[in-house]
Nucleic acid binder design. Structure first.
Length: 450
RNA sequence: GGAGGGAUGGCUGAGUGGUCGAAAGCGCUCGCCUCGAAAGCGAGUGGGCCCGCAAGGGUCUCGCGGGUUCGAAUCCCGCUCCCUCCGCCA
């Protein structure tokens, strides 16, 4: 693993690609300063621009020295005697000189790249401006709130009485925020995942079972690293055979298949006619949930491990097209919720509540009776060329190579989605009616329990 | 885990210190030929960065990082990945 201890902001050693559109930033720094401010980021753009100038100043000097050296290298084999000796000693001086200049340039470029890694996407005008989730706005709602003519139970009571969820034993085995799904609980989760995967498959999306572990570079490329998300991610390692010490590999458990599915085309130049790529990543996801102690501690809401079908799209660098796909992805998710008859609302996330990578983000929140509120179940994001730049994914439009635009949206995530399903489909006798669309995936079974 | 062999352009593959960004072939693009196609012939054909309105010029790039050298695809060190055989294994 690449040592990171002594580096304030780690840069992957990958090719030095501009993480943001530098020409745009140079011409229009105000837009970036505003975006950073609205997203609660502290970035010294003026210092960056100075660094950028410095870099551009050093490059010609370095290249000039190299050009001289290359020129001399062509001559040296043809020279003899004194002439050759003279040029050689001249080149020794130049070579030492060049090494110094290269060192200085490299130092600047590392800092130059580190700063770019912290810079945000510029949000759309329609994104509400505000510091946190309180500034989010409601876009739409769907469905009727469930009513019960008996005292409804929450999903934990239901799950335990039906013996389909076991939390106490899970705590013994895996600690807090873990769960066993058992019997029809396990079958229900598989049904809902399969149902959703088939829904996307029928619309021509390509299903992926991606790697569940990925390198730092993939997390950096998709915009999760560096930054606050780093402490959400489990690092994988093992015992060093020689020293006996525990050490980490350069592998991390994915918190979403977006990390690996989006990185699938890392470094590639795609054909324009093959775009958009509509990918559905079906995977387990892992989150440490550090810093959330005491929050959502009950039940299946906030857990360390869950399963998700994630929509990931790479499309042309065309905002109108991308926003159409955004609607398409959100609609796909809404169709699944509607077919399950689960009420939900769509929220526009404010600048402060959506990450630095996001150009536009909407969350879908599904009604959860036991919480007496909506709970986030889906997150739909348009990231412009933010990820494609970091991952260096381009397409050839016939004339020039352009960075793709990327989008992603949850299509379903379980067990969180089991909360509204169990709670809304419960009956007075404590049984659960299996939602009609899921029955084919449970061998026609209509009821859990009883 | 043991033993060996590799990594070069879109692909195959040559190249073991200097005019090598890299032979040759394939593919692709354009043109000629043709009623049209194939074949044949001719030309072209990676990407990043810097300067420039452009034309163009410079520079970097032969898995990654470092070293030796005036000069590295080529030599040395470390790393990653891939392949073959043996062992183990879901």
């Amino acid at each position: 693993m690449v040592p990171r201890e002594n580096v304030e902001i780690y840069c992957s050693p990958a090719t030095l690609v501009a993480m943001i559109d530098l020409n745009d930033l140079r011409e229009n720094p105000k837009a970036y300063k505003k975006a950073a401010k609205d997203k609660n980021l502290t970035i010294d753009f003026d210092a960056f621009l100075k660094l950028d100038d410095k870099r551009k100043e050093l490059i010609p000097a370095v290249e000039d020295k190299r050009a001289k050296q290359n020129e001399a290298s062509k001559q040296i084999p043809n020279l003899k005697g004194k002439e050759k000796e003279e040029l050689l000693s001249e080149m020794k001086v130049l070579s030492a000189d060049l090494k110094k200049a290269e060192g200085a340039l490299k130092e600047i470029e590392v800092e130059w790249k580190s700063m770019q890694l912290m810079m945000p996407s510029i949000p759309l005008d329609r994104v509400p401006i505000g510091p946190d989730e309180k500034s989010n706005t409601e876009e739409s709602t769907w469905g009727d709130m469930p009513t019960f003519d008996f005292k409804p139970k929450d999903h934990v009571e239901l799950g335990e009485s039906l013996d389909i969820i076991d939390l106490p034993r899970a705590a013994n085995v895996s600690g807090s925020r873990s769960y066993f799904l058992k019997g029809d609980g396990a079958r229900l989760q598989q049904a809902v995942m399969r149902y959703t995967a088939d829904h996307l498959h029928a619309k021509g999306w390509t299903l992926f079972c991606p790697p569940l572990m990925a390198t730092y570079e993939c997390f950096e490329g998709t915009g999760f690293f560096p930054g606050a998300d780093e402490n959400q991610i489990y690092v994988v390692g093992g015992k060093n055979e020689k020293s006996g010490e525990m050490e980490s590999d350069d592998l991390h458990l994915i918190g979403t298949s977006e990390v690996t599915v989006c990185s699938y085309h890392k470094g590639e130049i795609l054909k324009e006619k093959e775009l958009p790529k509509r990918y559905a990543g079906y995977s387990a996801c892992f989150r440490r949930e550090a810093g959330t102690y005491g929050k959502d501690t009950k039940g299946l809401y906030r857990v360390h491990q869950f399963e998700k079908v994630e929509q990931v799209v790479l499309c042309r660098a065309d905002q109108d097209e991308a926003l159409k796909i955004f609607e398409e992805m959100r609609t796909n998710a809404e169709e699944v919720l509607q077919s399950l008859n689960l009420p939900y609302r769509v929220m526009n996330l404010s600048t402060g509540d959506s990450g630095k990578s996001k150009v536009f983000q909407q969350d879908i929140e599904t009604w959860m009776p036991s919480r007496d509120s909506y709970g986030e179940t889906h997150s739909c994001s348009y990231l412009g060329d933010f990820q494609a730049r970091r991952l260096n994914i381009r397409y050839d439009d016939g004339a020039v190579k352009k960075f793709c635009h990327t989008l992603n949206n949850t299509c379903i995530a379980s067990p969180r989605i089991l909360i509204p399903i169990l709670e809304q489909y419960q009956n007075a006798d404590g049984t659960i009616t299996v939602p009609e669309v899921l029955r084919p995936y449970m061998g026609g079974q209509e009821k859990i329990g009883g």
